[in-house]
Amino acid sequence: MYKNRRVILFFIPSLSLFAFIALYPFGYAVYLSLTDATLISPTYSFIWFRNYVKMFLGADFWVYVKTTFIYSFGVTFIELFLGLALALALNVTEVRGKKVLRSLMLLPLMLPPVIGTLMWTTIYEPERGPLNFILSQLGLRPISWLGRPVEALSSVMLIDVYLFTPFAFIILLAGLQGISPYIYESAKLDGAGSWNLFRHISLPILNPTLMLVFLIRLALSFQAFETIYVSTRGGPAISTMTLNLQSYTTYFRYYHAGKAAAYAMFLWIIVFGISNIFMKQTRRT
């Protein structure tokens, strides 16, 4: 570890850029949220916290919050568990073709999310999509994947799971593979069975990694955009309208810049809280 006064030089290029693309707009957004500015009128006035008051009092607002949390926590938990299961499965010694399997399983993460969502939107098509066709062949009733509230939210979450499970998978796999086999050997000598090996050795060792993956995915899931924008735009009604999407819609479809900034600000505060926990967690390990 070095100590040097000129260390700041290392940071100046990136920090100056961030001042322009992050700090300045952020301040502007805070200011915007306190006005009634729109994108189609040149004049506006400063209205203090009226945007926030109206936002919190809006009946739909808490639905957006609920939807956002269901989405974010839902996909994060599913991706974590599925990723862990996949990592454990691939880690089983006797499995052949691990390299090939792994590269195939990584594919959805490398796909541009907009394209992945487009793919799933066509698959979900109620009329001519393959999913409903398969269902009808099996004698089941077709499902309105994107046309009914519960189904739409689930379908959209499924797209997220499809795209980002490989993230949890690959990191947990690396974590599992990093566990020295000797630890297992000595435990087996003591008579431990597979389940106990997992529960008392693998899991505790993986715990910090699990925590990390959880927090990373959780924070990022609040930013989810393509999975909803391309498929449902927030509908039907507002059943897939997360805070992120509502902010975008308010800005680009209703042109209400001030209100949109208020939504964005609120979302930001939520995620800020979560990333604080993340930093505290990583500093502990």
């Binding site: 707009p25 990022l220 930013q223 979302l267 930001w268 990333s275 930093m279």
Partner: peptide, 21 residues
């Protein structure tokens, strides 16, 4: 933390003003 938070924080909050900036 500042750097990492830029990755996690919802970009919409800077994108909206950047549209006009």
């Amino acid at each position: 933390f500042f750097y990492i938070s830029q990755y996690f924080l919802p970009p919409i909050i800077v994108l909206l003003p950047l549209y006009t900036i």
